[in-house]
Amino acid sequence: MKPGLKLLVAGAALAFFVALPQLITVKYYLHLSVLALVWVIAAQGQNLIQGYTGYVSIVQAGFMGIGAYSTALMGLHFDLPVWLTILLAPCVTAIFALATGYPSLRVKGHYFAIVTLAFNMVIFIVLMNFHQLTQGEAGITGIPKPGSRDGWINFRDREVYYYFVLIVAVAMTALAWLIVRSRVGQTLMSIRQNEDLVGAIGIAAWKYKLFAFVVSAMFAGLAGALYAHYQSFINPEIFGVAQSLDAILAVIVGGSGTIAGPVIGAFVVVFLPEYLRFADSFRLILYGLLLVLATIFMPRGIVGTLAVVWSKLERRG
């Protein structure tokens, strides 16, 4: 696809997202759209480490949890303004990511995946059992929304919050795009292709891998913070391994190693289970079946498949 056309598609997508709240008639779908945008941020982060660097990490939801709990707890205990805690949350997450990424990036492939999965379980167990800090399964309620109640923008309004999250999601997608295009991004992709070769030409691959891991965690931390202030309530439930797997799904289903992939994938992961509600108790079975079929017949994800179809059309036309 030509660069000009890509810009056009990106612009059309942006226009669509700006118009979306006006097109939606059911309030519940607006709620799901906010969640999907939060997932876009987390999935863009996941894509940096999984799609571009080739290291499948299974701790994205755990890092979302760290972001969500740190923004909530900092606001609660230190009485810091909401804007500040939202900005600090990714930094706290980054510290955790540094501490966990440094040891776990020494191993590769399935080992790395399972070690990060273990980290997610540790985070989950600590959130569940460290009652003094996290209030366990009951969770934290009454997390404030940003902005004051009588400010000129009312963030309690769902539509306003949608646009707020949209701006952040667009900014983070742009940031991911900038990282991928930079020399660092190129190095990440060469690590994915051939890590030994990268090492052989004198590049310290571990620094780049750690960078990708920490940045991806910061994306997750930010997403978690936005989620916490949107819902005003958090508990460990949604920061478990299953949700980390959803982040991986969003990247794979959308199109791994593409910028548009995580955007599409995040919406699929949030909306598809809702649309499958008609199947009632068979929902989980159907969702699993769709996943298996999609992986078998669209191994490169939605974006990858569309790109193939497009290039065929171009050649014919």
């Binding site: 999984q50 499948v56 492939g109 399935h110 995946a113 797997l245 991986i248 799904l249 794979i252 791994s256 108790s281 068979f282 929902r283 989980l284 079975i285 159907l286 969702y287 699993g288 079946l289 769709l290 996943l291 298996v292 992986t295 078998i296 191994p299």
Partner: peptide, 21 residues
């Protein structure tokens, strides 16, 4: 290999769903 892993995840959901059913 990640694709086989995704298939494994899909299978997990299906089997868990069938167990519930």
């Amino acid at each position: 290999h990640i694709n086989a892993f995704i298939v494994a995840l899909g299978l997990t959901m299906m089997v868990e769903g069938l167990n519930l059913e």
